[in-house]
């Protein structure tokens, strides 16, 4: 297979990976720090995309839409925390799963009522819709580079935030001992709200960024949510660094698997079985990775409970 094709798919995998990271970052903090399983995290991603479309219709500008959708995602996340989720922290995981699953159903129906069931699209502005030459005869869309760039910058910013600010220290300390933090004078509920709102905004950012390249439709968060859980389990629950490494691994392995598994199998198998087994194996790839990681390192690649 040509190197150029591999390169393109590597970039696609990277782009998919950084998007997964944006969703998984909030999920892993909320799960790790608050011990709270939030299935409704995927709908924050969906809402980010819908809000981008809605603000685009209002303003006619992609950049204005993105700039407005982010604070709107944050506000929505905070509202969801105060109205519903806050009351679930003291409950067991089963109650949390059931209640947040209810939130998914409610909001998936909600966006249908507000925006209709048909998929929506968001047009890219002229500035971002071109492509750049990678090598002789190979061009790659500018916007996908933008996604990679934004994702990596957010990852870098998040790394600095978690490692070099006091809130970041409290977040890391909270992954091991929340009672002690409150006994030292920190309002843990407020810390939870901040972490939650921030996580919701990052998921919303991922939704805003995919709106121009995927169709915006009800339920679009569900698939991403499952992948985000795979990412945080591989990376180690509560660890931002783990989420970053795992998201890129999952993004690249999933993309490369889907693109090349069939071709790779044809090297050792006849064409017809290779065509049958290839796609099946490719879609299992990340779950096999997760099983392998869990077998070798049950707490994930970077367990946060010991040290992040």
């Amino acid at each position: 297979m040509p190197t150029s094709l591999v390169l393109v798919q590597l970039f696609n995998g990277l782009q998919f990976g950084v998007l997964l990271f944006l969703v998984a970052a909030g999920l892993t903090l909320v799960f790790g720090v608050m011990d709270f399983i939030n299935l409704a995290h995927g709908v924050q991603y969906m809402l980010g995309a819908y809000l981008a479309v809605a603000f685009y219709r209002l303003t006619g500008s992609f950049f204005a839409a993105a700039a407005l959708a982010l604070p709107a995602s944050l506000l929505f996340g905070l509202a969801l925390e105060v109205v519903v989720l806050r009351h679930l922290y003291v409950r067991d995981h089963l109650s949390q799963v059931l209640a947040t699953f209810g939130v998914i159903l409610f909001l998936n129906e909600g966006v249908k009522i507000v925006w209709g069931a048909a998929p929506l699209n968001l047009a890219l502005p002229e500035l971002l819709s071109g492509s750049v030459p990678l090598m002789e005869g190979l061009r790659y869309p500018v916007y996908r580079f933008v996604i990679i760039g934004v994702g990596l910058s957010v990852a870098g910013g998040l790394y600095l935030f978690v490692n070099h600010t006091r809130i970041g220290m409290l977040v890391r300390a909270g992954a091991s001992n929340t009672a002690m933090i409150s006994a030292l004078g920190v309002d843990i509920k407020r810390l939870f709200t901040i972490v939650f709102g921030f996580g919701a905004m990052l998921a919303g950012l991922a939704g805003v960024m995919v709106a121009p390249i995927l169709s915006v439709e009800p339920g679009m968060g569900d698939q991403v949510l499952i992948l985000a859980f795979v990412v945080i389990v591989i990376g180690g629950i509560g660890s931002i660094r783990g989420a970053f490494v795992a998201a890129l691994l999952v993004g690249v392995i999933d993309t490369l698997g889907r693109s090349f598994m069939t071709d790779a199998l044809r090297l050792v198998l006849p064409a017809s079985p290779a065509r049958m087994i290839g796609p099946a194996l490719a879609s299992m790839g990340i779950y096999l990775l997760m099983a392998a990681v869990l077998a070798l390192r049950p707490a994930g690649l970077f367990p946060a409970k010991g040290r992040a």
Partner: peptide, 27 residues
């Protein structure tokens, strides 16, 4: 705690995920 009681708990319970300096600064 904010009213002015500083707890040194049984088992010490320092934060393993923070450095010594961060343990001091964080709260």
């Amino acid at each position: 705690a904010q009213a002015g009681i500083g707890l040194v708990p049984e088992g010490r319970q320092v934060f393993p995920t923070l450095t010594v300096e961060e343990n001091l600064i964080a709260t």
